[in-house]
Design a protein around this nucleic acid. Structure first.
Lengths: 238, 238
DNA sequence: AAAAAAGAATGAGATAAATCATAGAAATCA
DNA sequence: TGATTTCTATGATTTATCTCATTCTTTTTT
């Protein structure tokens, strides 16, 4: 299924522009570029499994990947959705742990694998890069704390409304009022992001549709009333 | 309320042994040692507030600090409890953000404040130390992901049982079967850790007591049946 | 020591959300 | 193309958990 494709050097890679590799020096980018391996993945494929040993990191060139944890009840909690320019798996590497989550392709993807040593050597010999990665790590930690607080203190309706707005901001196309979420997610996956049962998502989406906040176009969701969703997402905000 | 006390150098500090400063070289520990400031704090005092700018980091010498986020409904979600040897506030500093959470003293504490520059200079000029801090950061991220998954997929009963076991492992005294959690937390604070309503904690603790899993000694909780709590904490685990 | 405030306990009731069940729609397979 | 599986939708029911209200206890204040 996976296949190695033309191995574009990082120097010329468009997705590097908005990645953590953006301000890496020529020499350092070379170390990574010559060691990396670009691989094509199809929807549904697993990039890595929770519990296994990280052998390097992944840099997404195109496509979308869900990072998730499988709970003891069998349901998947989606930790985050990664897209072009995002790095995956570095927290396991830096934490010197096995993967504590799994990653699956959500939308056909081209992903570079950078072997452990090439990545770590570059990181440790290049303080600005190390700083950049640490900044990202810290930010992700802060985001996770926010998510935890939302999970325990907000209702499913609020969280779903927020999730839709987040998806629109990350994967939205067309500007003005109506915005299409240009990413196909199953109801079960949306439930995995929100942290709820699939049926609850289906019911609430129907409700949102009935209330003219959203509409469906094939398997995609169109946001019709951002403001109303924002109001719904947090009773106390603004 | 806060007061500067005898400024023991880091070199001689007992809590350094199990902190991230443990394997710092003599010269580097000196930079930090000469710049830090040890301050005594009383229960209830605030170390820093969410939204404010971090000016340095905190290293706990003794006492206990709760790090929490206040949700829009006014309830506090406790992100974690920090004790001797723990660092606080470095993720805001490294993430170059304002504090995204607040910290309050739970048990009278002596805490060193290390100014921003002294900490960052040491960090950036000392790769092993930087690695150590990054390892901790990564680990915390992985722990938070676990907490998020538990919050969305486990029941309050399971989470409370788990919380009690965690508190016993961190603050437990006496060995064998009965273990006392040597830390005074209000029911509201326990609710903040679990992420639930105070009444739910009270009710469940009463239930656990009735079932002989725990008992109360003053304001402290004694774990009487660890195994049963472990079973309760995760239906599917061994 | 009395008064006030804060914390803990418990009951009753409301409600959000999960679960179970079934049916229809859409996608995939053979 | 029809058959099978997966996904979505919706209803009915159950249940966990929250909220509100009240009482009791403990701590703090004056």
């Amino acid at each position: 299924m996976s296949s190695t494709v033309k191995n574009l050097p990082c120097e010329l890679c468009a997705s590097r522009k908005h990645s953590m590799l953006s301000d890496l020096s020529e020499t350092h980018i070379c170390t990574i570029s010559t060691n990396k391996n670009l691989i094509s993945h199809r929807k549904g494929q697993i990039l890595y499994y929770e519990g296994t040993k990280p052998l390097g990191i992944f840099c997404i060139n195109s496509g979308v990947v869900k990072v998730y944890k499988t709970a003891s009840n069998g349901k998947d909690q989606i930790i985050h959705l990664a897209k072009s320019g995002d790095f995956l798996g570095y927290s396991a590497l830096l934490g010197e742990e096995n993967y504590t989550n799994s990653a699956m392709i959500v939308e056909d993807a081209k992903i570079c694998f950078i072997p452990r040593e090439a990545f770590l050597n570059t990181l440790f010999s290049n303080t600005p890069f190390f700083k950049r990665v640490t900044k990202q790590l810290s930010h992700e930690l802060n985001v996770m704390e926010e998510k935890l607080t939302d999970a325990t203190q907000k209702s499913i309706r609020e969280r779903l409304a927020y999730t839709l707005l987040f998806l629109a901001s990350s994967y939205g196309v067309e500007g003005d009022d109506a915005q299409k979420i240009d990413l196909v997610l199953s109801r079960e996956e949306i439930a995995g992001i929100v942290g709820t049962a699939t049926e609850s998502v289906i019911r609430l989406l129907s409700e949102f549709k009935k209330d003219d906040l959203i509409e469906f176009e094939g398997k995609k969701i169109i946001i019709k009333d951002k403001r109303a969703l924002a109001r719904l997402s947090d009773f106390y905000a603004s």
